[in-house]
Design a protein around this nucleic acid. Structure first.
Length: 231
DNA sequence: CACCAGGCAAGTA
DNA sequence: TACTTGCATGGT
């Protein structure tokens, strides 16, 4: 029997949730093809992208990254050295003052703790890194986990607005879980494989961008339109 | 024109 | 703890 105790709603039994995640992943891959995220030429570019794309359209983020490449400063030391020109270069990504400072703080951390070496950074265990990243200003849970999963190849699942909206609209979660509750619930119901975590998050973003906008959900030809948890 | 985008932090009560 | 607001550009 489903438990409904003490006012805490538990939308769906776990045994169904894992099947739902599997089904979402399989159907999305059928529909969109494998995404092989994160789209970037280097782990450092992933990190920069993760910060620049906060609440920002990916196309605008790409423009900002392209500007950094064009200027030849897409590495920790040069970003620090040329920090004065950052706002102009990353302008298309929006919040450019804020994000310039976030990038500067981040590369300072990378240089001071790891001499700018991502290889050295990767030696450190997952949850020590997560704690360090979350202590930096402007690095919240989603940004931290994106960096950990896609730049450092650590096994942690990324929750974003699309993930929450899609699972919520399909009644697979109640929607009021906090970030870590939702992350852990997903991790518990997924094969413990980094490649699965990477691909599922990528596919959820594809579904979200294409079929599950804030307003205007044209969910008719969405590959998971018929998936529903609970009732 | 309004609304949105691969968040986060600071302020308020 | 639970809301609200600022940050800002470019697409639809």
């Amino acid at each position: 029997m489903p438990r409904a105790r003490s006012g805490i709603s538990s939308p769906i039994p776990s045994v169904k949730f894992n099947e739902a995640l599997r089904e979402i992943l399989n159907r999305a891959i059928d529909h969109f093809g494998p995404q092989n995220w994160w789209p970037a030429d280097s782990p450092f570019e992933v990190m920069v992208g993760a910060i620049l794309t906060q609440n920002t359209n990916w196309l605008n983020t790409k423009r900002a990254i392209e500007n950094l490449k064009q200027a030849g400063i897409l590495n920790p030391h040069l970003i620090l050295k040329r920090r004065r020109i950052l706002p102009r270069l990353i302008r298309p990504a929006g919040y450019y003052q804020l994000k310039s400072q976030r990038l500067i703080n981040f590369v300072r951390y990378l240089i001071q703790q790891y001499r700018g070496s991502i290889t050295r950074m990767r030696q450190r265990p997952l949850f020590m890194l997560r704690k360090e990243l979350l202590a930096l200003p402007g690095i919240g849970p989603e940004t931290a986990d994106s960096i950990l999963l896609y730049a450092l190849n650590k096994r942690i699942f990324v929750i974003d607005a699309y993930t929450r909206r899609i699972l919520s609209r399909h009644n697979l979660i109640s929607g009021d879980e906090d970030y870590d509750q939702l992350r852990i619930r997903c991790e518990e119901n997924l094969p413990k494989r980094i490649s699965i975590y990477k691909e599922l998050h990528a596919q959820l973003v594809m579904i979200g961008k294409t079929f599950c906008r804030r307003n205007d959900p044209h969910c008719s030809d969405c590959p998971i339109a018929d998936l529903r948890g609970l009732s």
